[in-house]
Nucleic acid binder design. Structure first.
Lengths: 346, 346
DNA sequence: GTTGAAATCGATAACGCTTTCAAATGGAGA
DNA sequence: TCTCCATTTGAAAGCGTTATCGATTTCAAC
């Protein structure tokens, strides 16, 4: 069923039907209703390719994943939020997977040239990210989930990673911990750098010095958490607290603590960053885990909103959201019992 | 840049250029090469909407997620595999999220009517799944990841869930375990039913009877694993072994076992189903976990292949893949020490 | 009744590609 | 040199929308 036939059934011109369906004002309310109902009845949906050709808009946004392995739990949650928001506007999400950075840029070029998408969403930025310049020059609208260092203006939405980990480290320090291990994310990623800076700033503010041997980087897996934490616990002066960049690595770290025969919340304090996954809850851990908390799903929804505004053309200036992060205290954090270096007394 | 301008630059007709780019045989190899190179040089990519309009093909496949929350780690892995395969054919993946079953069907109708996708991929089937009949009647090609009971023929790709859990339960039973708890997936889902059947069959084959109080259903989260296992351990006659439907629930179950002061692999044996996530490895648990193992990513790749064949029109008959599942033994399984019912001795 | 403006509606030209069918070109054979 | 077939190229007709105008209807006010 196409517009021609559909409008013939209705006894209206294609123009009127098209206008009625797209909600243009110059069609009588009664006519519009009649058209809408008929569309429902006959299951008429305009051919998307034809709309695209006529309007120049694709009605879809693109997201590219590197390696496919980049498609982790964080991504899923984010997409869930983004998708629910985009659904409202009838915008679809187009996914691509590539195996290299070069291929990623190539994909953007293809998506732009072939007009498959109206905009793309960037994620996992590094401190210096060539995609900003590339896409700006390409003229393909984009929003970055995260931040990067760039002289060019661009839309982004990020959480206050600096503040979150500054708070976490500061809180632990104020509990008397001075040897605070840090299981951070992948080196080079902006969020990991910001977290690192926040951590260091907390120490600096208190006149404490950072022990570099207590810092580790890696992807957010249970395994990485276990390995890094195991290493920290083997140090001559083990840490009395640890900050984990994700619930996954926290899980591994907790395992390492238990394996070492230590008690969480007592011998070792833990604060983890919680992206709020429905299937891993800090409240259900034993002990419950103190977290810096920020829903990655909510971030997806927000970016969907931005996208809506940008595609509707009402983006005067650039969206530059930075969300504060909440520190939620639970049972995994407590005062430093054993003061390292000099033998501590209870 | 459009075809008209691009072909003018080349001094060829639109027809020839189009044919050269699409690999038609009636264009001289030399011409084809010249066109291909120019396309690269000028970054020409045909407008996808125009192609779609002219050919009637969308060049994309659709996947619908309910609730957005359905978008868990299993899905991500699957999509990663699927995406890498589809990439080869230049087929994009179109994602939609909906909030009800009704909306899901509605989305399929929209995708089909508006010709946004050439096929869809179904997942998370229940034993009786109305989507098969719906899509068959709609005429929208589809592949089901999983299986369902249907009188209609359809393409599917599934793993041998029956066999996997039959093997797992059988192996534990042969080690002397008779009280084997089972943390299964969501009730109603085909895979969970098949696993249940496999479990029961293992008992039946050995003349053992199944204790229904040791069976639990739930989603694949750490929390659910913890809760269900906790319940089992509180029973007057606790189980001596447990089978978990996923690594997530296994993680929770392990936590419950430890919390109860029991030792894994000794007091309690564990077999978990491993979908092979890169970020949670059975080999890195303490103790290492015996698993029934089947890469969900590989399943994605396979379905991508099927899709390729179906869209190329070379699907004589229906794809009905069922993959065997491997039982990998590690340290979490051991002989039953305490025989329940009569007081066991250590 | 008329009139004129406002409210509706419709014919038709894009949009950028594929594909059909016809035309041109090239080379082999006579 | 000419004819004829095979190879290669081209002109033009869709594909199903939207958007631009121009045409028609409606209706209040005279």
């Amino acid at each position: 069923m196409n517009l021609k036939e559909f409008s013939r059934i209705l006894g209206l011109s294609q123009t009127t039907v098209s206008r009625a369906l797209s909600g243009y004002p110059e069609v009588k309310a009664e006519t519009r209703e009649r058209v809408a109902e008929a569309a429902r009845k006959y299951g008429y949906h305009p051919n998307r390719a034809a709309i695209g050709l006529a309007t120049g808009r694709a009605g879809a946004i693109g997201i590219v994943f590197r390696g496919g392995s980049e498609f982790g739990p964080h991504t899923s949650e984010f997409m869930g939020g983004l998708g629910t928001r985009l659904e409202e506007d009838g915008i679809d999400m187009l996914l691509s997977t590539v195996d290299s950075r070069e291929a990623e840029l190539q994909t953007y070029r293809r998506l732009a040239a072939s007009k498959r998408v109206d905009a793309v969403i960037l994620h996992s930025p590094t401190m210096e990210d060539d995609r900003i310049a590339f896409l700006t020059q390409l003229g393909l609208p984009f929003i970055l989930h995260g931040r990067t260092e760039s002289s060019l203006p661009y839309h982004f939405m990020d959480i206050d990673n600096f503040g979150a980990f500054n708070q976490a480290a500061g809180y632990l320090a104020d509990l008397g911990h001075s040897r605070i291990a840090f299981i951070n994310g992948l080196k080079g990623r902006t969020f990991a750098e910001h977290r690192d800076q926040g951590y260091r700033a907390a120490f600096a503010e208190r006149g404490l010095s950072v022990d570099e041997t207590l810092l580790g980087n890696g992807d957010f897996t249970d395994e990485m958490g276990f390995r890094l934490m195991g290493g920290f616990l083997d140090l001559p002066e083990r840490p009395t607290a640890v900050i984990a960049g994700s619930m996954m690595s926290a899980l591994g770290a907790m395992r390492a603590v238990r394996t070492a025969g230590l008690k969480l919340g007592k011998d070792i304090s833990l604060i983890a960053h919680d992206d709020v996954f429905p299937y891993i809850s800090a409240d259900n851990m034993v002990p419950t885990v103190s977290t810096t908390r920020s829903s990655i799903r909510a971030a997806g929804v927000r970016i969907g909103e931005m996208l809506h505004d940008i595609l509707a053309g009402k983006d005067d200036g650039y969206f530059n959201d930075v969300w504060p992060v909440e520190l939620v205290l639970r049972d995994s954090t407590g005062p430093a019992l054993t003061l390292p270096a000099k033998a501590g007394v209870r």
